[in-house]
């Protein structure tokens, strides 16, 4: 009975794959139409993801253990995919470029594929332990994930930036494919825009997490590995912002830092769960 949402969410996996492939095709074959189709499919993916999440929320109330679908690893992967698609589509509207969709959609696809088809993934709706019943926690998870999503999009642009730099330096034939990618200056600006948005949201995320910890057990900061890794991520991006604003670093260095920053995000999210132990063992 609690399966309608899970079924819907595993279907999304294929929608996202379709969108990623169309973005890729539109890019490689330089077909405007394919790009438009990709955007359409991506929006459909976002809508189905939203419906799936809402349905799961409703189902949890039907089971009598109602809580927002943000409380275990499965749910956080779904929400992560939702955030990445959302942040990407907003950027697409604002900057009217479809060439940047491959990376975020592929990432969302991987997250959903992992959530839906990995053996041993616990996709049941589980009751919340008392410490997790807090509105601060909901705010904490939402803001962290939107921040992570912006960092993901930024690192995708960072990768494109480096490819484009290399191609234009060596003047190789592949560079004609890159003509649809916005120019280097715009890419640089887009990385920066995504990073400041992500930095703001990660800050909100860390702060709401601290407030929650303080209301749950009286310490706003306890240096547990997940907390520490989110701080490390935050420091990497602070370093990136300062080097750009004050020391005037631009271009490749920013692209590299956006990739390193996102690697920290991934480690905060996956690595800490699998390799280190601490309070955040649930998500």
């Amino acid at each position: 009975m609690n399966m309608t949402s899970s079924l819907l969410l595993s279907v999304v996996t294929f929608i996202l794959l379709g969108a990623a492939l169309c973005y890729c095709g539109g890019w490689l074959f330089r077909r405007e139409l394919l790009g438009k189709i990709a955007t359409g499919i991506a929006w459909m993916g976002l809508i189905v993801l939203t419906v799936g999440l809402v349905l799961r929320w409703v189902e949890s109330y039907r089971l009598g253990i109602g809580h927002a679908p943000l409380s275990n690893f499965y749910e956080s992967l779904v929400f992560g995919a939702w955030s990445v698609v959302l942040v990407y589509l907003i950027m697409e509207i604002r900057y009217r470029s479809r060439a940047l969709g491959v990376f975020p959609l592929a990432l969302a696809f991987l997250a959903m594929a992992y959530a839906s088809f990995s053996p041993g993934m616990e996709s049941q709706i589980q009751p919340l332990i008392p410490a997790l019943k807090s509105n601060w926690l909901i705010a904490h998870v939402i803001t962290c994930f939107l921040g992570y999503a912006a960092f993901a999009v930024a690192s995708g642009i960072g990768i494109l930036y480096l490819i484009k730099c290399r191609a234009s330096a060596s003047n190789n034939p592949g560079s004609s494919v890159l003509r649809r990618v916005p120019n280097i200056k715009t890419l640089d600006e887009l990385i920066y825009q995504n990073v400041i948005f992500g930095f703001l949201l990660l800050s909100v995320g860390i702060i709401t997490g601290a407030v929650w910890a303080n209301s749950a057990w009286g310490t706003y900061w306890s240096w547990d590995p997940k907390e520490t890794w989110s701080l490390i991520t935050w420091l990497v991006y602070a370093l990136m912002l300062h080097s750009r604003l004050v020391r005037g670093w631009h271009g490749p260095r920013m692209a590299w830092l956006s990739i390193i920053g996102f690697a920290c995000v991934l480690f905060t999210y996956f690595g800490v769960n699998f390799l280190l132990s601490g309070l955040h063992s649930y998500a």
């Binding site: 590995p225 890794w229 701080l231 420091l235 370093l239 300062h242 004050v246 020391r247």
Partner: peptide
Amino acid sequence: SVRLTLFIFGALAATSILGTLIPQ
């Protein structure tokens, strides 16, 4: 100098990593 700031950010990040590897 902001160079010092960048150094401190890097140092805090690197040593914090160490702190998550060695059980506190």
